[in-house]
């Protein structure tokens, strides 16, 4: 029987969502154009050539190396693109993704990328045309709710703050706004430089929808072990596994074998 990865334990909807993120089996909710994604990222003008840091690998004459023969280069690496990044901040108010699961998604599903996990933001670096594709997947899929997850290259403050009155995550640089038609628009790129045109990032999810799709355990939604005030808590398998890993790692060092 072929091996089927299990990715993450737990029977709660949070556990199910975490498995979906890690496996890359994501539901596509919207379709941003490539030009829109490139515009928000702000590394190059849409339609312009990709600047390169080295000639295409085919022209370089690579050394005789068994690893290079085994691994097919990504399109960006083959073309010699620059390394570029996209970074997302996710609200703690039931945003669909959280930094760890964006990183798991990146590390498992995206070739040639370098995910960086921080407390309130998550960055993925890769060759330019690869990162554009990976960013589009994130923005199009259920990993992103435009109101609760914003692409923020700098001044990312917002993850752990209360939401604005209109349900948008606080943004010090006012990169996004809720339009009168109910869609969220990017008016600035990820580092706060104003755009020539607004970019439609789609409609925000409803409260019920975010609660259903989130990968965050919260006491007011799905908690690790039932209500905090309950006399007896039934711990989710995810937490039991986490305790198990913590115990083993603390006692003997984490050595999965």
């Amino acid at each position: 029987m072929a091996y089927k990865p299990q990715y993450y334990p737990g029977t709660t909807s949070v556990g199910v969502n975490r498995r979906k993120h890690m496996s890359g089996d994501l539901e596509k909710l919207r379709d941003l154009s490539d030009a829109d994604v490139v515009t928000i990222m702000g590394h190059r003008a849409p339609g312009s050539d990709y600047p390169s840091t080295h000639p295409p690998l085919a022209e370089m004459g690579e050394p005789d190396c068994p690893i290079r023969q085994l691994v097919t280069p990504t399109p960006g690496a083959a073309a010699g693109d620059r390394i570029r990044y996209s970074q997302f901040a996710d609200s703690m108010y039931n945003a669909p993704a959280i930094p760890y699961f964006r990183s798991y998604w990146g590390a498992i599903n995206c070739r040639g990328c370098d995910p960086g996990t921080l407390s309130g933001r998550q960055i993925i670096e890769a060759r330019e045309r690869d990162i554009e594709q990976y960013t589009k997947v994130q923005m199009d899929s259920e990993m992103t709710d435009p109101a609760l997850a914003t692409m923020r290259g700098c001044t990312v403050h917002g993850h752990s703050l209360r939401l604005d009155e209109d349900g948008m995550m606080f943004d010090m640089l006012a990169r996004t706004e809720l339009g009168s038609d109910g869609n969220v628009y990017y008016v600035k790129d990820q580092v706060g430089i104003p755009l020539d045109r607004k970019v439609n990032a789609g409609k925000p999810m409803s409260d019920a929808e975010t609660k259903k799709r989130t990968t965050i355990f919260r006491c007011d939604n799905i908690s690790f072990g039932g209500p905090c005030t309950a006399e007896k808590r039934t711990l989710d398998e995810g937490l039991i596994t986490l305790h198990h890993m913590w115990e083993r790692r603390s006692k003997w060092g984490f050595r999965p074998e």
Binding site: C154, T155, K188, D189, V191, G192, I193
Partner: peptide, 9 residues
């Protein structure tokens, strides 16, 4: 904008 490529905008 306090930091980054857009600093000062």
């Amino acid at each position: 904008v306090p930091y980054g490529p857009g600093k000062g905008i």
